[in-house]
Amino acid sequence: MLLDIANLSKRFSSGGRDVAALNDVSLTLPPGETLGLVGASGSGKSTLARILLRLTSADAGSIRFEGKDWLALSGAELRRRRAKMQMVFQDVLGAFNPRATVASVLGDPLRIHDIVPKVERPREIATLLERVGLPASYASRSIREVSGGQRQRIAIARAIATRPSLIVLDEAVSALDVSIRGKILELLVELQQERGIACLFVSHDLAVLRAVSHRIAVMEAGRLVEIASARQVIENPQSSAARALIAAVPRLVTGMPERPHHDV
């Protein structure tokens, strides 16, 4: 198993109340698989992603990643191993130094994790850009002057730069226009298949998760309430949370808008 999360719990205190953000969550992820993690606001899905990325601590439970006790790692060892677990967030501009150029955004992880020798970095940056569908000439641009969709491609290029075995994506396509969203999802699926990267794809949008996930895990009020193949969750949901999320996906209504019948 690439990732093994066991009995993870986390409590926050909010307005004097003690809230269980995560309550005894366990799940596993084999190499090369995409697991969709879905839930309403406050379900705990982002807390799970943040603990996994070591951005916040857990109160209880364990995480094994590539066979190591991931939560016990610290310092140089943690920094070194982070290369294998990368992330892509929703607000890409906020995730970059606003003064950065595209080349420095991609060059930093190559340097920090010593992926290629210095002399080969420009060529590696060009290769990464081309792999995510951008011209190599974009390297000299400022991160602010590229469009939202292009910036998300650069975030993906940065994530794959360190040759990770797992990428955690938190609402990574939610802010994009639909026409761009589809292309980014296609790119993610291609990269995943080509490089055998596993993905934990966190979103409130089941339609997006349906497109890219092998399995889907459903969270509600800090608990994992359902986990099964994407098809099973969509076609035969077992939890009320999954049924509510399915019902909430907007469908294209091509007939006349439905009017409720008022029986008097």
Binding site: E33, T34, V178, S179, R181, G182, L185, E186, V189, Q193, L206, A207, V208, R210, A211, V212, S213, H214, R215, S229, A230, R231, I234, I246, V249, P250, R251, L252
Partner: peptide
């Protein structure tokens, strides 16, 4: 194009089934 890029639960997934 806008209609074609719409994705809901009946849209075929981009990956093959698990």
């Amino acid at each position: 194009a806008l209609l074609a890029s719409h994705r809901d639960l009946s849209t075929p997934p981009l990956i093959s089934e698990a």
